[in-house]
Every structure is written in structure tokens, then in C-alpha cells.
Computed example of a mutant assay.
Amino acid sequence: MRRHEFKPGRLIAGLFLMLTGVVYAGDAGGLWETPWFAVIPLVTGGLFLAAVTGSVAHGIRRRHRRGVPAPDPTHAPG
């Protein structure tokens, strides 16, 4: 099997959408009562976090491909 790039943004989006499904399933099963609008923050927050995570990962991946070393935090500018 071919290896593929790890995309953490898709992982975050999938986790939040699965959480939304669990919330609705618990409501449908009678375990708890969920108002219809409660999942809006879950979905929008999850998609926002996924976008931020994906952008950061893309920036790190692009910097790594160019061969630009990451800044050394122990080196003080002088």
C-alpha cells in the first residue's frame, strides 16, 4: 500500500463531524435531549479548527520542501 501525506485538518474535521453524529444518535436513542441548534457550534467550530490546522500543516510542509530550516529558538539575534 502506498503511503500518503498525513492531513491533520481532515482528521480534525472528521472527529468533529463524528461527534456531531454521536450527539444526534444519543438524542434519537433517547439517552439525552439535544436542541436542534446545539450542533451548529460543533460543526462550525470543528471546520474552523480543521482549516487552521490544515493551513499550519501546509505551511510547515511547504517550508520543509523548500529546505528552509526552522528558526532556532535558542539562538538570540545579536
Rank of each mutant, 00 (worst) to 15 (best):
R2W: 05
S55L: 13
R63V: 02
A38R: 03
P35E: 10
T44A: 15
L47M: 14
R2S: 13
G78M: 06
W32A: 09
L31H: 09
A50G: 06
T44K: 01
P8C: 10
R2V: 05
T74C: 02
H75P: 00
V39T: 14
I60E: 05
T74S: 14
V52Y: 04
I60V: 09
V52P: 01
V56P: 01
G21L: 15
P69V: 02
H4Q: 13
R63N: 04
H75W: 08
R66Q: 07
F6W: 11
G9D: 04
L31R: 03
A76L: 13
V23D: 09
R10D: 09
R3H: 11
K7Y: 04
R2N: 12
H58F: 09
S55N: 11
A25P: 03
D72Y: 06
A76G: 05
R3S: 12
T74A: 14
A50F: 00
R63W: 00
L19Y: 12
D27F: 10
G54E: 15
G29I: 03
T44C: 10
M18N: 08
G54F: 06
R61K: 02
A38V: 12
P41A: 11
G54I: 06
P69Y: 00
T20K: 04
L49C: 14
L49R: 01
R63L: 07
I12F: 11
G21C: 14
V39E: 06
V52L: 14
F6N: 05
R2I: 09
P41E: 06
L19M: 15
Y24C: 12
F48G: 13
V39M: 13
L19P: 01
L19H: 09
L49E: 02
G14M: 07
W36D: 10
E5C: 07
A57M: 08
R10S: 07
A70S: 07
T53F: 03
F37D: 07
D27E: 08
K7S: 04
F16K: 00
V22G: 04
V43A: 13
P71F: 07
M1Y: 06
A28L: 12
A13G: 04
A28W: 07
W32V: 11
M1G: 15
I12W: 10
F48H: 11
G14F: 05
F16Y: 08
V22I: 15
F48M: 15
L42R: 00
H64N: 11
A28Y: 03
V39K: 02
H58W: 08
T20L: 12
